[in-house]
């Protein structure tokens, strides 16, 4: 059964095209004839390459979104923002501390936030952007990291910010400080690294490398499988090769 295509007008950087109303803005632009060379990445809402700004008819509001996620709407006027000049506070992560002073030094403009909440309203990932900026100002790096975790770094918040903050770069600094300095390192992983370096597994791996297919299949079938719904403490019956 052929479904009827309903065409609607959209204005791509001022020029009108008729496009099906079932398409995202990105697919609508391609339908109109654009070969995208910028402003297109994962096409799945995670890479942040395809920011757009648009306005709907009879509204004064400037809205922003991701072209691969936002649906084409009748009469929308849109501009693509595939690149936005973000500021980067250059640093070596090993030489900065997980403290508010780091942000004061690298991103002093953060402290000029006027709490207008435009950043939050512009976020295509529904992140509480202003809240994490305020967390940074308070020196609460843990909260800044957790609140910003879903950030795709599209920069749309920056495009709308009256204090000209590069939120995404501030947020990733908070997350990397959190991940590298605040949360405890995994001790079990560090031990495994030591064991590998000490050559503990070399003999077992050598045997496997030399084994023929039949032997490998036999060993593969004999593997003891960790059941799904067991706690982390589960241990196999055999300690061989551990």
């Amino acid at each position: 059964m052929e479904t009827k295509v309903n065409l609607i007008p959209i204005h791509v950087m001022g020029k009108q095209y008729m496009v099906p109303d079932t398409l995202t803005v990105m697919k609508a632009m391609e339908y109109a004839g654009y070969q995208l060379t910028r402003g297109c990445g994962c096409r799945g809402g995670i890479c942040g390459a395809c920011g757009i700004a648009f306005r709907l008819p009879d509204s004064y509001k400037i809205e922003v979104g991701l072209a691969c996620q936002a649906m084409a709407q009748p009469g929308m006027y849109l501009a693509v923002l595939p690149f936005f000049p973000n500021k980067r506070g250059i640093h070596d992560l090993n030489k900065v501390k997980a403290a508010v002073d780091t942000f004061k030094a690298l991103y002093p403009e953060v402290f000029k936030c006027v709490s207008c909440n435009t950043c939050t309203k512009s976020c295509p990932m529904s992140i509480e952007v202003m809240d994490y900026i305020n967390a940074v100002i308070r020196g609460d790096i843990v909260q800044a990291a957790e609140l910003s975790f879903d950030c795709v770094m599209c920069g749309l918040c920056t495009s709308r910010c009256p204090a000209e903050i590069s939120h995404a770069n501030v947020a990733i600094l908070a997350r990397r400080l959190y991940g590298s300095q605040i949360t405890p390192r995994a001790e079990h992983l560090a031990k495994q690294v030591e064991q590998v370096k000490a050559g503990k597994f070399n003999e077992g791996l050598d045997q496997l490398k030399k084994a023929d297919v039949n032997k490998l299949k036999e060993l593969y079938k004999a593997r003891e499988a960790e059941p799904d719904n067991t706690p982390d403490e589960w241990a196999p019956k055999s300690n061989d090769y551990l």
């Binding site: 077992g204 196999p236 551990l242």
Partner: peptide, 8 residues
């Protein structure tokens, strides 16, 4: 997880 897994 050393107690149950290895590169092997």
């Amino acid at each position: 997880k050393l107690h149950k897994d290895s590169p092997y």
